[in-house]
Amino acid sequence: MKIEYYIVLSLALFCIGIAGVLTRRNAIIIFMCIELMLNAVNLLLVAFSKMHHVAEGAKNVAMAGIDGQLFVFFIMVVAAAEVSVGLAIIVMMYRNTHSVDVNFLNRLKH
């Protein structure tokens, strides 16, 4: 499978995420679209890691391309931490204003 197919697939997923962030007003859905964008990047990193493994494998580099998959692992770690803090902020926001509409909160007070 050529790398272009994976690049186009990841770009499409990323742009769907961007369109979601721009069009929706529910804070939780915006957060889910950010997760979608992170996953598009993860998919592309794994595809590039497998591409470099083939390209460098001819030069007898056994573990070429393994960095890409470890970066994906660390992105998942950061995403898990981000989700826990972000959802706590959204719950706190809901408790204060009884709404998760981001347009309602554009003044950053009340």
Partner: peptide, 29 residues
């Protein structure tokens, strides 16, 4: 407007792929 701006980003990045260095390289399946 949101959908159009997302679509424009997709269009620009796919168009930039046309002269990418990695074009045509195979992914190991």
């Amino acid at each position: 407007a949101g959908v159009v701006s997302g679509g424009c980003l997709l269009l620009v990045m796919v168009a930039a792929l046309k002269s990418a260095e990695v074009k045509g390289q195979l992914v190991q399946m």
